[in-house]
């Protein structure tokens, strides 16, 4: 499988030489596979945001290197700006970065910086807006008149409109209601399907990661605790629990039922899958003249 982004033995220290020195990352090596959705999960302060800001060259690792399709992104300073167009980063609470008079102009800010022509910008803005589910009637409104969830979508569309090869999102769904969360994740998956790009999502929620991610990277105290496809990662459920990170509730329920002797396959992470696995068992029981 081709690697889109690779961090090689990366460390980062905030506030070197001051009293407030923090080792945010120490010796992290991870690979992000091309065309897949990778989830980064970990506690508050485990270095997730620091890690994703390295992926588009906003911060330079104290040691180690960051590679985009095999190239060191810090090799040529002049190319950093291009790197940022190739790796689109949506910050935590991106709605606070909106500034333009209209929604349209705000989404177009990135593509305009790319010096695309009017027509292409318009095409991209419309496409990004439809991906995140924004109505075109909103284009002429001020972004400050929108609801929180709509603002968030405008901000995400602003990055999607740059059509990056890798889309990185830091807590894209935090502070939204369940429906809002679902919509955002759906938009992200739609983007991936439409462009064939790679997606990296930072999240606190194992449930969300279980439903939407293919690979998972677990961060703990600035180190990569485990990474791999989600089936493998969730096999370490016990260790994750010890770290205070939960596997999805439905998965731990299934694990316990299996421990009690029910024949349930491994690798169930969503309620739908659980229903599919349980239904035949229940029918069998009912048919067998039980309760």
């Amino acid at each position: 499988m081709e690697t889109a982004i690779e961090l090689v033995d990366v460390s980062f220290v905030y506030g070197t030489g001051t009293v407030f020195r923090t080792d945010a990352l120490s010796g992290v090596s991870v690979k992000i596979a091309k065309g897949r959705v990778s989830g980064i999960i970990g506690h508050t302060g485990s270095g997730k945001s620091t890690m994703v800001q390295m992926m588009n060259g906003l911060i330079k690792p104290t040691s180690g290197s960051v590679r985009l399709f095999g190239e060191d992104i810090f090799a040529d300073k002049k190319k950093l700006r291009d790197i940022r167009f190739r790796v689109g980063l949506v910050f935590q609470y991106p709605e606070y970065q909106l500034f333009e008079e209209t929604v349209y102009k705000d989404i177009a800010y990135g593509p305009t910086n790319m010096k695309l022509d009017e027509k292409e910008i318009e095409r991209r803005v419309k496409k990004a807006a439809s991906l995140v589910g924004l109505d075109e009637d909103l284009f002429s409104k001020s972004p400050f008149e929108l609801s929180g969830g709509q603002k968030r979508r405008v901000a995400i569309a602003g990055i999607m409109a740059m059509e990056p090869e890798v889309l990185v999102l830091d807590e894209p769904a935090s502070g939204l209601d369940p429906v809002g969360r679902k919509d955002i994740f759906k938009a992200i998956l739609d983007f991936r399907d439409a462009t064939g790009g790679t997606v990296v999502i930072v999240s606190h929620s194992m449930e969300d990661m279980a439903s939407y991610a293919d690979d998972i990277i677990v961060m703990n105290h600035g180190k990569c605790f485990v990474s791999g496809c989600k089936e493998e990662v969730f096999k370490k459920a016990d260790e994750l629990c010890k770290m205070g990170l939960d596997v999805p509730q439905i998965t731990s329920l299934m694990t316990r039922l299996r421990a009690m002797g029910m024949e349930i396959p491994e690798g169930i992470y969503t309620v739908e899958d659980a229903a599919k696995a349980l239904l035949p068992l229940l029918l069998q029981k009912a048919g067998g003249g039980g309760v």
Binding site: N56, L58, R84, F91, Y109, G110, M114, G158
Partner: peptide, 13 residues
């Protein structure tokens, strides 16, 4: 700092 980074991520120069 945060806003500057966010705008840089959108290609601000």
């Amino acid at each position: 700092d945060k806003i500057m980074s966010a705008q840089k991520a959108r290609g601000a120069d």
